[in-house]
Computed example of a mutant assay.
Amino acid sequence: MKRKMSSSPETGSASHGSLGTKFEVFLSFRGPDTRANFTDTLYYALLDKGISVFIDKQGIDIGEEIGPEIFQAIDDSKICIPIFSKGYASSSWCMRELEHMMQRRKTNELEVLPIFYDVEPSNVKLESKVYVDALTLHKEKRGAEIVQHWAKALKEVTGIKGWDTKNTGYVNSLNSIFPFLYVSFA
């Protein structure tokens, strides 16, 4: 599988787990929604600050299993940043990543810092049709029990103070994220 795993010598990342790298940040996002704009900007800005980042840059190769590598990268990260966009909940992989993040957060093994890119936190909290419709489609394919876990993770993540780019613009959001991350890794 071709995954972009970046580590900067300044971060002092230690070898850990099956990936060989311990990441400070794992970015979770729906590629078609944010990859070419917000996510890439955030990714390169984090690298410029010397923060090691795991990001899916190449996509998934056909026929390769992505679960173990993705979940290991989440487990090997200090902070996970789900970037909620209108299409985030339509991706079963984004939902699986979020569920895993929230489970790890409960055991105090991971910090989750949500970014609401082009949705309101209330959308993610399932108070509007934006995410409800996506979960309804998943329910037909994946079953009610799995989708119930995903809905719970979505509601839980909205209880975490994050950044809302819809009302502030993503440049302002990025400017407020960096000081927070810098203090987290200092």
Rank of each mutant, 00 (worst) to 15 (best):
71 F>A: 05
126 L>G: 00
144 A>K: 13
141 K>Q: 12
20 G>M: 08
6 S>R: 11
77 S>Y: 10
185 F>Q: 05
98 L>F: 05
123 N>A: 06
112 V>P: 01
21 T>W: 06
8 S>V: 14
10 E>P: 00
103 Q>D: 13
4 K>T: 09
50 G>H: 11
77 S>W: 10
171 V>C: 01
148 Q>M: 04
123 N>M: 02
28 S>D: 12
184 S>H: 11
108 N>F: 06
161 K>E: 03
103 Q>L: 13
20 G>H: 10
20 G>A: 11
7 S>D: 02
84 F>P: 04
4 K>S: 10
39 T>I: 06
138 H>W: 04
60 I>L: 15
96 R>L: 04
126 L>F: 02
73 A>T: 10
150 W>G: 00
158 T>S: 10
113 L>Q: 14
58 Q>K: 13
176 S>P: 01
81 I>H: 08
33 D>A: 07
146 I>H: 01
64 E>I: 04
66 I>L: 15
80 C>F: 06
184 S>D: 00
52 S>Y: 00
86 K>T: 14
104 R>E: 11
160 I>W: 03
9 P>N: 09
98 L>P: 01
71 F>Q: 13
15 S>Q: 07
88 Y>C: 07
109 E>V: 01
105 R>I: 00
176 S>K: 15
29 F>D: 03
149 H>F: 00
19 L>H: 06
16 H>G: 02
27 L>E: 07
11 T>I: 00
72 Q>C: 09
14 A>H: 10
96 R>V: 00
27 L>G: 11
64 E>L: 08
102 M>L: 12
38 F>T: 11
11 T>R: 09
128 S>W: 10
91 S>E: 09
144 A>C: 02
13 S>P: 02
87 G>V: 02
41 T>D: 12
127 E>L: 13
124 V>M: 10
38 F>P: 09
47 L>M: 14
53 V>C: 10
57 K>G: 02
104 R>H: 09
127 E>C: 10
90 S>D: 12
113 L>T: 05
172 N>W: 00
9 P>H: 08
93 W>C: 03
124 V>Q: 09
136 T>P: 00
176 S>C: 02
156 E>Y: 01
103 Q>W: 02
136 T>C: 05
46 L>I: 05
131 Y>R: 11
103 Q>I: 10
149 H>Q: 14
56 D>F: 05
119 V>P: 03
120 E>K: 15
75 D>S: 15
52 S>W: 01
57 K>C: 06
89 A>D: 04
102 M>C: 03
143 G>N: 07
183 V>M: 11
126 L>S: 03
94 C>G: 01
44 Y>W: 13
16 H>N: 09
73 A>L: 06
39 T>A: 06
48 D>R: 15
44 Y>F: 12
147 V>I: 08
183 V>E: 14
100 H>E: 06
48 D>K: 15
55 I>Q: 13
15 S>T: 11
64 E>N: 14
44 Y>E: 14
106 K>Q: 13
67 G>F: 05
137 L>S: 15
11 T>S: 15
53 V>Y: 09
83 I>K: 09
118 D>R: 08
2 K>S: 06
141 K>F: 02
13 S>Q: 06
35 R>N: 05
21 T>D: 07
125 K>P: 00
17 G>Y: 12
71 F>W: 01
175 N>K: 14
